[in-house]
Design a protein around this nucleic acid. Sequence first.
DNA 1: AATGAATGAGACTTCATTCAT
DNA 2: TATGAATGAAGTCTCATTCAT
Lengths: 206, 206, 206, 206
Amino acid sequence: MEKHETKIDGRKKRSACTRKAILESAKSVFLEKGYTGTTFKDISSRAGIGYGTVYIHFKDKEELLQNLVDDVMTKIGKVVYINYSPSRYADVREIVYNQIYSVLKLARENRHVFQIIWDALGHSKVTRSYWDDIFNRFIERTIEDLHYSQEHHLARPLQTKIIAKGIVYMIREFLWDIVWERENDIEQISENLFELYTGGVYQTTE
Amino acid sequence: MEKHETKIDGRKKRSACTRKAILESAKSVFLEKGYTGTTFKDISSRAGIGYGTVYIHFKDKEELLQNLVDDVMTKIGKVVYINYSPSRYADVREIVYNQIYSVLKLARENRHVFQIIWDALGHSKVTRSYWDDIFNRFIERTIEDLHYSQEHHLARPLQTKIIAKGIVYMIREFLWDIVWERENDIEQISENLFELYTGGVYQTTE
Amino acid sequence: MEKHETKIDGRKKRSACTRKAILESAKSVFLEKGYTGTTFKDISSRAGIGYGTVYIHFKDKEELLQNLVDDVMTKIGKVVYINYSPSRYADVREIVYNQIYSVLKLARENRHVFQIIWDALGHSKVTRSYWDDIFNRFIERTIEDLHYSQEHHLARPLQTKIIAKGIVYMIREFLWDIVWERENDIEQISENLFELYTGGVYQTTE
Amino acid sequence: MEKHETKIDGRKKRSACTRKAILESAKSVFLEKGYTGTTFKDISSRAGIGYGTVYIHFKDKEELLQNLVDDVMTKIGKVVYINYSPSRYADVREIVYNQIYSVLKLARENRHVFQIIWDALGHSKVTRSYWDDIFNRFIERTIEDLHYSQEHHLARPLQTKIIAKGIVYMIREFLWDIVWERENDIEQISENLFELYTGGVYQTTE
DNA sequence: AATGAATGAGACTTCATTCAT
DNA sequence: TATGAATGAAGTCTCATTCAT
């Protein structure tokens, strides 16, 4: 009995190990050759495993990609979905600044995975729609917040949808600047975007 | 003599005609199947011409793409490079609003070509770098304008590079909203982005 | 354990079998259609295997050719490199005659492969240079032998390089006569070339 | 009338001129890219004429080649067919030496054309058979000469066919040495081959 | 005669996927 | 599970040849 279980466990461990090796290899090859430029042969040989073995663990490149990207995708999804209901103008600073900062920090900490995502957005429909979902949700959240602020006479009467999109688009594009190291100073970006946002949206006097 | 010239002209006309047919066909196939999904066979058969003929006119898909896209690329490059030096706050409205509006209008009027560009950005390095150049120039221009405004005490002392990027990123992403018909009301977008921008950047009290 | 080894062996055997089938098929197609006239499609279909399979075993036609030809090339290289230092005129007969005879015999026994080589010399640089190397070495060897004979006053004072080339050229061209069955009597050819050679080169009186 | 004839003549002249330009261009391209590597496009563009024009003058590459090569082929054919009937041993020297010398001189004076022929032998059946015919005739001639010499007890009783082939093969291969500039000294080659030949074939004592 | 645009057969090559071991 | 040999569809591209001008 025990012997049998050990066997099973050994197999599982081995399988998990192979799987991990594949994912690491895939990450490195994707970064080097891009999504379409990568073949299963590249991945398997760099992982030091057999050709067909990749197929056992991942049905196709798409699935491999999803697994590589899923973790970070989930994280950014969470960051983006933080709910806030500022009762006073002072709270806004804390909340908005932090949200921008968190997104950019995530980008900086996972540059490589985001670089893969960047490439994948043009080639994988699944990744693309996942990505779009996240930011649409971000926009929805921001719209709600703006509504709340408008109702409490904190924000000027602008088109919430447009403003929300605008601010989210800015953050999203700065994310790529961080990922590709065109920008580094996360604090400054967060600060300035916050100023632009609140200056443009919130009533200053009163 | 006349006969000879006619001959030359006839040939040129025919060639130009074929070339045009290829470009139209390519446009339609690109839209339908995407850049990578398109083959020279698709293009030639839809254009009703021979297979090898495409190769006479265009060395490869890349070159074909450039030709399709070049006109619109040039146009957007021009729109983006309009110089302005507002002396008074009142002028800013006119200029900024108009620039946003012009970009979005161009997008609306050339939806199909921009859809091809959208796809091409992920697959053609040439197109990508051309596109990036245009918007980097846009950013540079905006930085200069902000400097000018800051020196004349029209604008608040924010980081010009970040603010310029922010506003350009917003416009660029709204461009895609227009292209993919997720947004339609160009006036309203221009209006709101203008308000966000000026509200965030310019000194309100005077 | 044993099971595993069997698996490996089974695969290896299968692979070797396919490889052999390709080589045989290639040999037959090369003979029939010539080197340039042969396509991988011809080879694969005649071998009764899949199209892409050939590419697994051989990178290109060149490599395939080398494999076909290598064995015979090596053999002729060896025959040609036999060293001899005749101390007496009587030995010369034995040695020279035998060398000519060996080359021609090899040609007769491997007619088909030599026919492929014949064709390949005009199309494959690798084969051409391999072939030239072999016969240049043959010439070098013959020059050395002539020097030796001259020093021992067996040979007349002719230009060794030219004489050596001459004799090698004769043998090489008779090789093709054998290969293409324009000549058959190897003994007679060897005999006569030997006579021509020794008669022309060696001192008769003494 | 006269006007008409002038017109005709003008046309003929122009046509001949074009033809000549094509041949020169073809020669240069053949030398540079080899027979199979040369396309009609290469030839026409280097000749500075229209694409289809080549087809008016030459049906295909083969025909073009023949025209390029014909002159030299005829010349070598003539050199090779010189009849001789030496009555005395002294005459042999004069005749044999001269024939070898003439062949090699022709090679030296037409290196480029022979280089084209060299390449063509592996690709053009017509050229190949023309070439073979010439040297077969050379062999036939040499056989006859040997018979004559044997009947007059000038030559030893060797197999005439084999000896004739041997000597012709040597000359033919030295021809390529000259063409490819691996050898330069025609006199010395002729001298040595003559010595080898006569030493091997003719009765020395008497 | 001269031109060069148009043609399309066919060679080459890659690679996702299957499958026997 | 792991392996890698085998497969063939599908794409790229070339070039001899035709033909309208």
